[in-house]
């Protein structure tokens, strides 16, 4: 179960994941409102409840039960939310927001600083969440946003996002293992394991740069495509991070 911020993530990853995942593991996407990590009402304490509601809602719509969900994967844009306030530049002629290598340019510096604070708190909360309704949970980031990771374009107009994502998917869905190579390429793959990769993105201007830790989902699971693995093992591999605890308990 993938929780995403918009339909361009579905357009980019839907077809690829359909082909990449074992046949008995079906990727289901649930879309949150794009501002659910940044709106005034989006306090970390309420976040988990909100995601739980999303899960219930998706189960109802798609006729599955919570027990069918082997794991919940959050995909979130960083939007430069971890940069110091000094990197948020006021420019009255600018639009609401423009990202570049070193700064966020905006006509509303105060607003963006507030948004960054809100979003980084929420992302921290997600990164530290290990389960949702008893289901293993992992959060991966796309920095500074989906388009930046996929096509190296930071400020893609909203109207072009879906088409761009589909053009990206076109290159990979027939050979989805090539997507695993793409997302694991050191050009975009943030260094370190799960926790290190989150520490890394919080540093300096990294959340404006082109990074993602989504490769960890496949790095843990890379073994499954070639070998015979049981559903159970595959799930453990896919959710290696959080399932590791279960294994210890078992």
């Amino acid at each position: 179960m993938f929780i995403v911020e918009g339909k361009s993530e579905e357009a980019a990853f839907g077809a690829i994941f359909e082909r990449l995942f074992p046949r008995d593991l079906r990727p289901v996407f649930a879309e949150e409102r794009s501002d659910y990590l940044t709106a005034d009402s989006a306090q970390p304490e309420r976040l988990v409840k909100r995601l739980e509601d999303l899960l219930y809602d998706s189960a109802r719509r798609n006729h599955f039960r919570l027990e069918d969900v082997v794991g919940v994967v959050q995909l979130a844009d960083t939007d430069g939310c971890y940069v110091p306030d000094s990197s948020v530049i006021q420019d009255d002629k600018a639009g609401r927001i423009r990202y570049d290598k070193r700064r966020i340019v905006t006509h509303d510096k105060k607003g963006i600083e507030k948004r960054n604070a809100q979003k980084s708190r929420n992302l921290d909360r997600l990164a530290g969440t290990e389960e949702l309704l008893g289901i293993p949970f992992v959060a991966y980031y796309l920095s500074c946003n989906l388009d930046h990771v996929l096509t190296d374009v930071r400020n893609l107009p909203s109207k072009d996002k879906v088409r761009s994502a589909m053009a990206f998917a076109k290159k990979y869905w027939r050979q989805p293992e090539r997507f695993v190579e793409f997302i694991g390429d050191p050009v975009v793959a943030a260094p370190g394991g799960y926790e290190d990769s989150w520490a890394f993105i919080r540093e300096g201007l990294h959340s404006l740069a082109r990074w993602s830790n989504l490769h960890l989902l496949f790095e843990n699971a890379r073994g499954y495509s070639g070998e015979e693995t049981t559903v159970e093992e595959t799930i453990r591999l896919v959710f290696g991070l959080t399932i590791a605890e279960d294994r210890e308990e078992a």
Binding site: E10, A11, A15, F17
Partner: peptide, 9 residues
């Protein structure tokens, strides 16, 4: 299996 994503693509 059919998929809205493969159909869209």
């Amino acid at each position: 299996r059919t998929s809205p994503y493969l159909i869209s693509q």
